[in-house]
Design a protein around this nucleic acid. Structure first.
Lengths: 239, 239
DNA sequence: CGAAGCATTGAAGTGCGTCAACAATCGTGG
DNA sequence: CCACGATTGTTGACGCACTTCAATGCTTCG
């Protein structure tokens, strides 16, 4: 089940036998978590990071009055809080959006791993930097794109990211979020998120039903989104 | 002039003599750059990172039609593109907002530095993770806060960050951005940014003139912003 | 089978955008 | 030191994308 994570890493560098084994050995335990649970709470001191093996997670930040912004979605193969290795506590919550399987990686092992394999240290550093790039693209979406373009952009991004770990096909992908959660990703109200989905349906670019997103017109969707995947850094061997 | 950077780092760990010297030695050259220049262009392969010694920089992303979102502001002591060490090319531009002095740090030296001093590797990794936390807070602002609250929040954040490097006082700080640039940080039009400044003035919380931001009512400003600085990770010794 | 959450719809309101004009300031060269 | 164009700041009128409020049917699940 850690194969999705390794698949992602191997897009960037060839892993030696020892490196791959060290990564496998860094997992202390594997846990199953039901949907709608807060896995990591804002501000709490942490001594391990969570590697998502299956399911969907969200990083979210709440306002005093209760409004919520999801700042990142995570799918199989993603480290949900690798940044807690250096930050020690998070500035956001991490919650399950579906039933999830997570691997627990103690910070102590990450320390050994990164000191023993500086190349892996840079690879994992790279990985948190890609998270940051995704967040910058979100800021661009929230600041400049219309609701329609924003939603289309999110769907394009998710398709590209899921494709890397073999969880998407040309027709689309499983999408377990409710419209409320989707709205929280996009900085919209539920009502407007609903109307935006309907507009995408009306334009025959996507369909969304039964927790599955069907992409009907990929080019059309990417056009609405003005999608350029280079910010995802999905390419082979950067160094 | 690198002292602002060291001051920032020393908030988090005590630097040994050797570590501090290694950081100083990592600078290959120092350059002065006029205002309104693109220092680093989106997509270009890089072999060094820029440490800002003095002045203001912005990370910005442009849309095909020309709209621009600033995803981060940088002040003295900040690494503008430490993430280029692992990403190799950026997903955004870095431009000068004022005259700037930057130190050029080759990636080759960063590689040596981080391999020789794993503690510094983690500290610099930490630093890029704080940048990401700041970007998440921006996403929260853009997605959920009103224009007024967003602007107040930015001013609070800048005051806190400038204070760390000794470039703010109780009364405020120098703020070289035009209203257009400020608007680009906040996802607003110039016209509405102008009206928002006026509302902050009317409420007697800040004044903005002659490239200086004066904070008249700190508590009032923080109240409008619902400002909680914990996402900035300004505190002593996380490990 | 009932309750709770989720998706959908309509009507009305508003925060911010757009367009357009003008005033103030700045930088530059004569 | 002034002239002048360019940039920056400010204001008003109007429009619209998105919100708010409220109601209704649809699913899901104990």
């Amino acid at each position: 089940m850690i194969s999705a994570h390794l698949k992602k890493l191997k897009r960037h560098i060839e892993l030696s036998r020892e490196e791959e084994q060290a990564i496998r050995d860094s997992v202390a335990e594997t846990r199953s978590v039901p949907a709608d649970k807060i896995l990591i709470r804002n501000g709490v001191e942490l001594s391990s990071s969570m590697l998502l093996l299956d399911g969907w997670l969200a990083r979210s930040k709440d306002m005093p009055a209760g409004e919520r912004q999801v700042t990142q979605l995570h799918v199989a193969g993603d480290f949900a809080d690798l940044h807690s290795f250096t930050l020690k506590r998070l500035d956001h919550d991490v919650a399950t959006l579906s039933e999830c399987v997570v691997a627990v990686v103690p910070h102590s092992r990450l320390k050994e791993l990164t000191e023993q394999f500086p190349r892996l240290a840079r690879l994992y550093w790279f990985s948190t930097n890609v998270d940051a790039a995704i967040c910058r693209e979100l800021a661009l979406s929230l600041g400049q794109r219309s609701a329609l373009s924003r939603m289309a952009h999110l769907f394009c991004e998710l398709h590209a990211r899921l494709d890397v770990v073999g969880r998407a096909d040309d027709g689309g992908f499983n999408f377990p979020l409710t419209q409320r959660e989707l709205a929280e990703c996009l900085g919209l109200t539920v009502v407007h998120a609903n109307r935006t989905i309907q507009e995408l349906r009306r334009r025959r670019v996507v369909e969304l039903e039964n927790r599955r997103l069907t992409i009907i017109d990929r080019k059309g969707l990417e056009g609405i989104a003005e999608f350029d995947p280079s910010y995802l850094y999905i390419e082979r061997l950067p160094y």
